[in-house]
Design a binder for these strands. Structure first.
Length: 686
RNA sequence: UGCGGGGUGGAGCAGUGGUAGCUCGUUGGGCUCAUAACCCAAAGGUCGUAAGUUCGAAUCUUACCCCCGCUACCA
């Protein structure tokens, strides 16, 4: 990173704005906030001019859905979570210079200014299209607010954007029998005008900037994703929506429309900077508009396209802004082998952790950094959490500091003893000590936080080894000067640790500095073997880390097991009965008993089996989406119920004549609805 | 389906053509200043599968398998 110090005068570091429909969990922390915080703390220690930006993303459809579910206003939802999120970040030591929110006035103004600017320049395309409108609720319906029957698989509860049964992406107009999720009404199509950002026109400069310009310095996952998007061809993207929650579109003829969240959210970084400038009396502009500022976006992998393609396009077209120098996106973190999920409550929530493990912020920071999903998805387990605390933080770091300070108090009344003649081993250790700051800094400059943290820990390992090899507790009997030298050097290592660990373990750094009776040292002081002068008085030793007992871990595991149980219990809710049909309608269905006589997997599909069924009437081919639950060879000979007069349909090029009746539970698991006795094939089901 | 990322000893990772390395765990030994912590040593891997290029492949090529994302704005 040293070279860059010449190139950049200041750093603008953003962390993805958490969506304000839930609290913060370990996935957010490991993916975005901890690495960003480490980076910023390091830069500050080096003495760089850096602003670290965060804030809540408070617009968008999901928040309106949640508000409606709970019968409150969207503002109530975001107020609630913004407060929780902001506090938990603060208590956890995420060192934002500003934590703002997109419902703030300054943000609405900034986003509108941006929109107006691009609008006036004629950057947007205007298109009028027909969208579904709910006449009862007097509003246009977001894709997600429309349900209907999927045209591909006949699933009746498909959403306007996707069918969750067959996984196909849909547009609302493809749905058969669309219904408004708000009122249950049948929506009507109405013309509505929207503005689009013509990303297709930006392809050539994006290609030059990313594909050629950032081939070597962006992470493979980020670069690969961007290249793929650009190669496939970009399409215009709508920047407005028909919704009553968000930043109003500031042009004529846009009543009842708001700026689409993905357009307004990243602008939140800029509005937050303005807010910070106002509070501190500084100028925000250099951080965003000066070529000698380095802009870095910390995000998760799901945000790559927005931060690498769309937001830079907006900045570029506005004209006066700088582009990100790097976008170090992390992959995802799982929890105990399962995807983290807000809606399923499958998470370790930060605000709960802070209450249940008071004073242990650094333990979580350490574990999440050591396990950070930098190159691929990773897993957080409580057992690993315990092991990393007990076997690494405590055993290596905490123990080294403790034994050094305890010995100093024991032999020299807590005063730093003087160095005398250096042996070979002393010189070797001092020389090695000097290499650490650069090693850690070099890894940080490459956004390799795991590696950087491991380097820092190696310094503590060096200390333990040094003590064991020099054995001051034996030397004290014969050679006190020798012990003075050994402890002096050991204490210098402790002093260095307090500096090097600060970006990773800020609370520990603070405790350690106090124990060493040092005022806040900076990065430039590290690598020095004379941080603590001889005669300097130390404070009494205190443990930096405590052992985490099995009981605490078992409680957390039990909490997760309870969540699983609760989820299972919630899932037994049964859908209400559908509308009545008369007997004539029912008797149109011809359902028979039959036997599966052949079965094979349809190649290159996940779910489909090609079956041959003896229906009593004939032997026919049926394609059925059950391969995830039944293996072909297991179901040959199985008795089934089959709808025989369903119109034929081609699936993957194979004509399917009929449908096997299956029951489906809330997990989507399937089970045959079969005759319980060996009934003759072709018997009618009535 | 396509595209992108990943698949390395029990766990987490490094390693882009030349004898497979690190941390934790395990086993044995040493030490006793230290929160049974520390230090040393050992065991443990046919580097997802198969074929190919090469004197030589974890590393390059091709095919396939598995996990995750793009694809419920949950990082």
């Amino acid at each position: 990173m040293n070279k860059e110090q010449n190139k950049f005068k200041r750093y603008t570091v953003t962390s993805a704005l958490p969506y304000a429909n839930g609290p913060i969990h370990i996935g957010h922390l490991a993916g975005v906030y901890i690495p960003a915080d480490i980076y910023c703390r390091y830069l500050r220690s080096v003495g760089e001019d850096v602003i670290f930006i965060g804030g809540s993303d408070e617009h968008g459809v999901p928040i309106t859905i949640k508000a409606r579910q709970q019968g409150v206003a969207p503002q109530d939802i975001v107020d609630k979570y913004h407060k929780i999120i902001k506090k938990s970040f603060k208590d956890f030591g995420i060192s934002f210079d500003v934590y703002s929110r997109t419902s703030a006035k300054i943000h609405h103004e900034t986003a509108q200014e941006f929109f107006k600017n691009l609008y006036d320049k004629g950057e947007f395309i205007e298109r009028t299209a027909k969208n579904y409108y709910d006449e009862k609720e007097n509003q246009f319906l977001a894709d997600r607010y429309i349900t209907g029957t999927c045209p591909h698989c006949d699933y009746e509860k498909a959403y306007g954007d996707q069918c969750e049964n067959c996984g196909t992406s849909l547009s609302p107009t493809e749905l058969i029998n669309p219904k408004s999720a708000l009122s249950g009404n049948v929506p009507v199509l109405r013309d509505t005008k929207h503005w689009y950002l013509p990303l297709d026109k930006y392809e050539s400069w994006l290609r030059e900037w990313i594909v050629e310009g950032h081939k070597d310095d962006w992470k493979p996952n980020v670069y690969g994703q961007c290249k793929s998007w650009i190669d496939l061809g970009l399409k215009p993207r709508a920047v407005t929506r028909d919704l009553n929650w968000g930043v109003e579109v500031p042009v004529e003829g846009a009543k009842g429309k708001v700026i689409y969240v993905w357009f307004d959210a990243p602008i939140g970084y800029i509005s937050a900077t303005k807010e910070w400038a106002k509070e501190t009396g500084k100028d925000w502009k250099p951080y965003w508009k000066s070529e000698d500022s380095k802009l870095v976006h910390f995000i998760g992998k799901d945000n790559i396209v927005f931060h690498c393609i769309i937001f830079p396009s907006i900045l570029k077209k506005e004209g006066s802004y700088i582009l990100p120098d790097n976008v170090p996106a992390n992959e995802f973190l799982n929890l105990e082998n399962d995807k983290i999920s807000t809606s399923r409550n499958w998470a370790v929530w930060l605000h709960e952790y802070l209450e249940e493990f008071p004073g242990k912020q650094d333990v979580l920071r350490y574990v999440l950094t050591a396990n950070a999903p930098e190159t691929k998805d990773n897993d957080f387990t409580w057992k690993d959490f315990q092991a990393k605390n007990n076997n690494e933080l405590l055993a290596i770091f905490g123990n080294f500091v403790n034994r050094t300070i305890v010995l100093t108090h024991k032999y020299f009344a807590g005063k730093v003893p003087a160095l005398s003649n250096l042996d070979e081993i002393d010189k070797a250790v001092i020389n090695e000590l000097k290499t650490f700051p650069d090693k850690v800094a070099s890894s940080l400059g490459k956004y390799r936080f795991r590696e950087a943290q491991a380097q820092m820990m190696n310094l503590a390992r060096l200390g333990n080894k040094y003590l064991t090899e020099t054995e001051p507790w034996k030397q004290i009997k014969t050679d006190e000067n020798r012990v003075k030298t050994i402890l002096n050097i050991s204490l210098q290592i402790c002093g260095n640790l307090s500096i090097l660990c600060e970006p990773f373990l800020p609370f520990t750094a603070d405790k350690l500095s106090k124990m060493l009776n040092l005022s806040k040292l900076k990065w430039k002081d590290a690598g020095n073997e004379n941080i603590l002068k001889s005669g300097h008085q130390l404070e009494k030793p205190a443990y930096l880390f405590e052992k985490i007992e099995d009981k605490a871990i078992e409680e957390q595991v039990q909490k997760l097991l309870d969540t699983k149980k609760e989820n299972a219990a919630n899932e037994v809710k049964v859908n209400p009965a559908k509308e009545d049909v008369n007997f004539d309608d029912f008797s149109k269905l011809d359902i028979r008993t039959g036997t599966i006589i052949e079965a094979e997997k349809v190649p290159k599909t996940k779910k489909l089996l090609k079956l041959k069924i003896d229906t009593g009437i004939d032997q026919r081919t049926v394609v059925s989406g059950i391969a995830e639950y039944y293996k072909a060879e297991e179901i040959i000979g199985k008795k089934v119920s089959i709808l025989v007069n369903l119109a034929p349909k081609k699936l993957r090029g194979i004509e399917s004549n009929g449908m096997i009746l299956m029951a489906e539970n809330e997990q989507g698991e399937l089970c045959f609805v079969s005759p319980t006795q060996d009934f003759r094939n072709g018997s009618e089901v009535k």
